[in-house]
Design a protein around this nucleic acid. Sequence first.
RNA 1: AGGGGCAUAGCUCAGUUGGCAGAGCAGCUGAUUCCAAAUCAGCAGGUCGUGGGUUCGAGUCCCUCUGCCCCUGCCA
Length: 325
Amino acid sequence: MDPKPPLRSLTGIKPTGMPHLGNYLGMIRPAIQLTEDCEAFYFIADLHALTTQHDRQALKEHTIQVAATWLALGLDPTRTLLFRQSDVPEVTELCWYLSCVTPLGLLQRAHAFKDAVAKGREITSGTFFYPVLMAADILAYDSDVVPVGKDQKQHVEMTRDMAIAFNFHFGDTLKVPEPRIGEEVATIPGLDGEKMSKSRGNAIPLFLDPKSLKKLVLSIRTDSTPLEAPKDPESCTVFNLFRLLASPEATAELAERYRLGGFGYGHAKLALFDLLEQHFAEARDRFRRHMDHPADVEDVLDAGGRRAREVAVRTVSRVRDAVGL
RNA sequence: AGGGGCAUAGCUCAGUUGGCAGAGCAGCUGAUUCCAAAUCAGCAGGUCGUGGGUUCGAGUCCCUCUGCCCCUGCCA
């Protein structure tokens, strides 16, 4: 056994409502996997959500839904901290200290900001400051690694810039984190074959009731190859979703049926539906139980928040001392 | 900084002299299909950017604020 303490990894999860299959395969499953050998801090980024979410009821509901989802999918809150970003006010304090060593130009170069400007979106100061708050999240917990998709890599690099700038001005105080870019997960196709995303409206939500789920799976777009004809599995969305969850054996078997012909897309869809049920039915029951007892979920978040805050308080007191407060 | 234009359904836009808020596309339901698509039938969809004012009555007229676009100026 390695005597070194486990690395601390940190991830923020935006509370955008019930997560979908693409979220699960792309982020949730690998993140839960990571808790096996890392000390994981996973927070629900409610402060970040506030840049776009101005519906208080929706924010509350989404927060509980996201927490319930992670718990249902196997996150163990006794060994992984699951908490609300907003339960650690030290983060916003640290955000200020960081902003005072962050050049304006650094924020102006942020991809997300430039993209919003280019698209003519209404943009608030909070959106502009997003990367500083994110840096504060990462640095407040002395995170070692930050598992992110490549779209988030720039934010982690900005965090490093801010930490290095702070350390230059005030002495070695903040731990400079490493981005850990997850190995390229194949893009998850949605109902229409395009990349699955909530905004495209082509997502398959996790924990949908069986009847709705079946209907949704049957609506996956397929070509008009007739029932009898052989079909190419590689170009079929149904097959590509199936293989992401199925064993290699089951995948090979399904591919074979495609190539033989006489096997329709409708049949393939039912196979995918069965696979989804097999995979998520139990988690769905757990999710439902959590949603029926939101107070218990709140307790988990509260407890996680207290433990996370202890860490952040120590960091911020170190930072206050460093800047001369 | 000054002048002008724009803001209406998820999207693109109509909306007459101030008089019951509309269309196309997207969406949803059904028929059809192994399933989907296409087609057909049906349904739903709105703080008319914000806040005030005039009026019996405001999407429409007046003022405020916010955001976007254009022109001019200023700074470099």
